[in-house]
């Protein structure tokens, strides 16, 4: 075995394999197969794959972008403030008018002096 190199052995093997029996299809085998299928039904227990229709991205993206732009525009104007509940607009104005936000520092002095009422 050692005296044969790999390539020669492969070539020899391939030639040897060509000497294997070449099977021939028996006479009438295909006709018998066609007769066999006449006697069996078809099953439909597997649903053929249907590719999902592709959604055009711009048909979704465009309305979303328009809605966002409109939202920003409306938010930057006072046009619709009259339609908003008072609780929202009053709260905002009250917060804005409070120039001295409570930090708790004044209370700290009181605590330091012992006035803890």
């Amino acid at each position: 075995m050692e005296k044969y190199d790999e390539t020669r052995m492969d070539a020899a093997l391939e030639k040897l394999l060509t000497r294997a029996t070449e099977p021939s299809v028996p006479e009438g085998a295909e006709a018998r197969l066609m007769l066999a299928i006449q006697s069996v039904g078809q099953q439909v227990n597997v649903v053929p794959f249907q590719p999902r229709p592709r959604i055009q991205s711009w048909t979704v993206g465009l309305p979303l972008a328009a809605a966002l732009a409109l939202g920003i525009y409306i938010g930057s104007k006072d046009t619709f403030d009259a339609y908003l509940p008072d609780a929202i607009t009053d709260g905002v104005s009250a917060d804005m008018s409070d120039s001295m936000p409570s930090t708790g520092l004044d209370d700290a002095e009181s605590y330091a002096e012992g006035d803890v009422t």
């Binding site: 029996t21 099977p23 197969l33 066999a36 069996v40 078809q42 053929p48």
Partner: peptide
Amino acid sequence: WRMMNGNAETEDVAQEAFVKLWQNPAQ
């Protein structure tokens, strides 16, 4: 035929494969 070493059942097996295809081509 080669897998079954020339066995007489070769035709049956080959036929069975095609029958499976006929029964459920959606595969």
